[in-house]
């Protein structure tokens, strides 16, 4: 018994050590920095004051960007789910001999740098891009149709980046479902659709929720699609952090924004893990 309670810690120790040293400690530095001051030269002055936080909440500008980020992240999650579930289900059901190959294809976009992929949308959606070129040639439109540099284009870029995460998360979870369960359901007179709704869908929820969480969190930390595909008002919180930390070398304020964002995300992830988390669902299943 003693041996058993010690075992999970043994299994966890390498991960915990790495994450502790390379994440927890550095993040503590960030939190400490958020109370510091910035000298005009860009050097940091140790201090303990809440000026950076006060600045963030002084008017609606910064909180507004944070709220906008959350909204864009939720929209991205929604579209990812719509676009991702069916392909994942297809992989699960298909008996094609090309299945592994099709799976690898999902990861293929990653082979081309994120920056290049994002820039590539300009060649498709831009004023002289593929789509406009096609419609102009066909004579369907007279003026190029403006599709770039708005929030839609940003979400498009985000989807392009995040969809594989969603598909693979859902697929892995679907693939773990015991086939005999759906067979049993059908044996009891369920139609294919009912079997899906009553058995497959609920059992795939761990993957769905993991995918949603992942997409949400990653959207909050991404700055390239808004930078490249967005218009002037489409910047998200990560762009702001990037500009403060790197652009103006204002580490204390950048740290304060980061701390606020990390705090928010930590609450979300913790709540998720507690109420609808992987372990919770597993507990429910294992009791049966």
């Amino acid at each position: 018994m003693k041996n058993k309670s010690f075992r999970p810690w043994l299994l966890l120790s390498p991960s915990l050590t790495a994450v502790f040293l390379l994440l927890v400690v550095p993040v503590c530095f960030v939190v400490v920095y958020s109370f510091w001051l910035r000298a005009p030269s860009g050097a940091d002055i140790p201090a303990f004051q809440f000026g950076n936080y006060a600045k963030f909440f002084a008017d609606f500008f910064y909180p507004g960007i944070l709220l906008k980020t959350i909204r864009v992240a939720l929209e991205t999650v929604f579209f990812c789910l719509i676009m991702g579930y069916i392909p994942a289900y297809f992989f699960y059901k298909t008996e094609s001999k090309f299945k592994p190959f099709l799976m690898i294809l999902v990861m293929l976009p990653f082979w081309i740098s994120f920056i290049i992929r994002t820039l590539s949308w300009i060649n498709i959606l831009g004023d002289s891009g593929m789509i406009n070129h096609f419609f102009l040639q066909m004579g369907l439109i007279k003026e190029p149709f403006a599709m770039l540099y708005n929030e839609g284009a940003v979400i498009m870029g985000l989807l392009q980046y995040l969809l594989p995460f969603m598909i693979l998360n859902i697929y892995v979870s679907l693939d773990g479902i015991d086939n005999s369960l759906t067979e049993a359901a059908k044996g009891l007179g369920c139609t294919e659709w009912q079997a899906f709704r009553e058995v497959t869908l609920p059992l795939s929820l761990p993957g769905v929720s993991a995918g949603c969480l992942l997409v949400f969190v990653l959207t909050c930390g991404t700055y390239l699609p808004p930078m490249i595909l967005g218009g002037p008002g489409d910047e998200l919180i990560a762009n702001l952090i990037f500009k403060r930390v790197i652009g103006t070398l204002d580490w204390p304020f950048g740290s304060a924004i980061s701390t606020i964002l990390m705090g928010l995300l930590a609450v979300i992830v913790y709540t998720y893990n507690k109420y609808m988390g992987i372990s919770q669902i597993f507990n429910a299943l294992s009791k049966e």
Binding site: L16, V19, V24, G221, G254, S258, L261, A266, V269
Partner: peptide
């Protein structure tokens, strides 16, 4: 579990 998933919550710039 939350802690180990934390690396994706921290913006990479930070």
């Amino acid at each position: 579990n939350t802690l180990l998933i934390a690396p994706i919550m921290v913006p990479e710039v930070v």
